[in-house]
């Protein structure tokens, strides 16, 4: 599939509409200028207000982190999910060792190998003490090259609701640091879980490509960002495909 500029604008508009219908209504989201204006409104909002989640990372492995991000998002209760969604699933990534923090702080999800931990989405004040103790996750290296890998989404499949599916999750690696990849993939993953696109028992095929272009399947979720090389263009930083049924 080819991601045209119009398709990218539609993905970006749908995300704003899903999160903040009233803000979306104030702008013409079919135009590049309208999207930029909406983005400016969002950026101007007080960062101390709104809901955010904190991810504490001791070490990073893409497949392991993807699996745990899904596990975390699947455990979020609907009320928290709604306010987090309204805050564009804002997430702060911090360097820290969950093994040293579990006694003092309560986490909604902790990776089984203690490589990462997630706080439930909540007000900035609720995570202020944790954020004071730790530092922003500083990961300027590029994603290490790796073959495609399949991640099983944890949890018991609810087969009565819908069959298990496989989707491909693409991340654009050109010019992308690990810290940036985390941000892009996190939005795509958690929003797909909150929207029911990813469910327990599903499979995700992780694919690192220089650019998310010409994907064989249509994309159901796209992380749309401004193109560094041309501010008048958009590009996909990450994308989740439509489902591929599993036997």
């Amino acid at each position: 599939m080819t991601l045209t500029q119009q398709a990218l604008r539609e993905h970006a508009a749908l995300r704003i509409l899903a999160a903040r219908p009233r803000l979306a209504a104030r702008h013409d989201l079919t135009s590049h200028e309208g999207l930029l204006a909406a983005q400016r409104d969002i950026t101007a909002e007080d960062p101390t207000e709104g809901t955010l989640a904190v991810v504490v990372l001791r070490s990073f492995d893409l497949a392991r982190w993807t699996r745990d991000t899904c596990a975390f998002a699947l455990g979020i209760d609907p009320r928290q999910a709604a306010s987090w969604r309204a805050g564009f699933t804002r997430t702060v990534f911090l360097a820290g060792d969950p093994a040293h923090l579990c006694e003092r702080f309560s986490f909604a999800h902790v990776a089984p190998d203690l490589s990462a931990a997630w706080t439930a989405p909540g007000s900035a004040a609720r995570s202020a003490a944790l954020r004071r103790l730790l530092k922003l996750f500083n990961a300027p290296a590029a994603l290490p090259a790796r073959p495609d890998v399949v991640v099983d989404v944890p949890g018991v499949p609810r087969l009565a609701d819908r069959p298990r599916v496989r989707r491909a999750l693409y991340i654009a690696t050109a010019g992308c640091t690990i810290a940036e990849a985390l941000v892009h993939l996190n939005h795509v993953l958690v929003e797909a879980v909150l929207d029911g696109l990813i469910a327990p028992g599903d499979q995700l095929s992780l694919r690192q490509v220089p650019r998310v272009i010409g994907t064989p399947a249509r994309l159901a979720g796209v992380r749309v960002i401004a193109d560094d090389h041309d501010p008048n263009r958009l590009r996909a930083a990450a994308g989740l495909t439509e489902e591929i049924p599993l036997a």
């Binding site: 360097a95 820290g96 500083n138």
Partner: peptide, 15 residues
């Protein structure tokens, strides 16, 4: 807390 594998710093971790 050694995060050199992601291009990050090394921290003294007394958290």
């Amino acid at each position: 807390l050694d995060q050199r594998d992601v291009g990050g710093p090394v921290y003294l971790d007394l958290t």
